[in-house]
Computed example of a mutant assay.
Amino acid sequence: MDSESSSNPAIVTSNMENLSISTDPLTNQFSSLNDICFELGSLQDLANRGSWRSINDKVARARALSLLEKPHDHLTYLAYNALAFTKLRRFNEAYAELETMEDLDSSRYRYETYPKVYPNRTGSMVPFCLRWLYALIPIKLGQRQEGVDRLYTLLDFVREKLKDKEIKNLCVSLNLWKKREIFVMNCIIGQHLSNKEFSVSLSLIEDLLSRDSSDPVLISKLGYIQMQIGDLEGAKRSFSQIEGLMKEGNSNGTLSETELKNLVNRNKALVYLVGKDYVSAVREYEECIERDHTDAVSINNKALCLMYLRDLSDSIKVLENALERVPTFALNETLVVNLCSMYELAYVNHSDIKRTLSNWIARVAPDDFDATCTRT
């Protein structure tokens, strides 16, 4: 099996992504997820719905009743349990789960150790998610350097796997591990950016772009960093490069046509934001929303631009309408923090309004939503 929020209004530059536990290419041999692991379909469904507490309960029950028979069943359930604890910000409990494993590369976690259970299968059965959590949890517990070191170790591990897949010419697996390399690189870049280590971040992105110069998401991230270090002209060149890819139809296929067009519009809007041309920025975001009404980044940023234009009433309406129409996409901590900040600016009785919002969130939000972001 392979498987924070500020008190000030924030401009969002990209969609938040969740890490899910995915299966390896061999899963196409099975008719359902439950053929791969005990009630895996149920675990995956709970994860998709954000029902992380239910996952913890399900794992506890399966363990108590000894329902997990095969070695990889235990590892899969451990991975979901640790991920659920992490999503719920119960990092000490996630850490304790991971500590039960000791060495991730132990022979006890390899298929060939159990030839009768896994005939003709070799390699590690440790879900990739567990290796990522092993690096992430120390960072969440305040041990940043240890976590960053582990991320670099994980990057080395992924690249070794890539070499092996290239030698064996396993195309499906190769594509999977390439995605994992980019994922880990982005995690590392994020850590360096949060510590304002811009030169390292630039070096890492340029390394990725040297291998795939047609990735619009990576080029955008390069532009965002260039903007943060004051290189506006460099950012404009990066954003123009994405426009060129779009016109030539030469992007690497990671985004749909709508997603690519919206990325171009959002990048233009960021340049307008730097120049405090909020009217033009609003126009770009409106194009995005007209094209895709679930684009939470554009919805959030349009509202902020209207606030900067001193149109608090309309900025609040933009966010409230989005929460009402597309709560699954619009309900994130950054957007809610921004809405609550607008309430505080616009209304004397903002505490009552925020309490109403908080009560609604309690009914519809997934388990991992940080309800404290309403500051009620």
Rank of each mutant, 00 (worst) to 15 (best):
D2Y: 11
S5F: 10
T13G: 13
I21Y: 01
S22N: 15
T27P: 15
N28I: 13
Q29R: 13
S31G: 15
N34S: 07
D35S: 12
L43F: 15
D45P: 06
R53K: 13
S54D: 12
K58L: 11
R61F: 14
R63I: 14
L67K: 10
L67W: 09
T100S: 10
M101A: 04
T113D: 01
T113P: 04
T113E: 04
Y114L: 00
P115H: 03
Y118W: 02
T122C: 07
V126C: 00
L130T: 00
W132I: 13
Y134N: 05
A135W: 04
I139P: 00
L141S: 04
Q145I: 14
D149W: 12
L154K: 02
V158A: 04
L176R: 08
E181G: 00
S201P: 11
L202H: 13
D207T: 12
S210I: 06
S213Q: 13
V217M: 10
L218Y: 03
D231R: 11
F239M: 05
Q241P: 06
N252K: 04
E259F: 07
L260A: 04
K261L: 14
V264N: 06
K268M: 11
L270C: 12
E286W: 07
I289Y: 02
D292A: 04
V297K: 01
N301K: 02
A303H: 00
N321I: 02
A322M: 06
V326P: 02
L331N: 11
N332Q: 14
V336C: 02
M342W: 02
Y343M: 00
V348E: 11
H350P: 03
L357V: 06
L357M: 07
S358P: 14
D367L: 05
T376C: 11
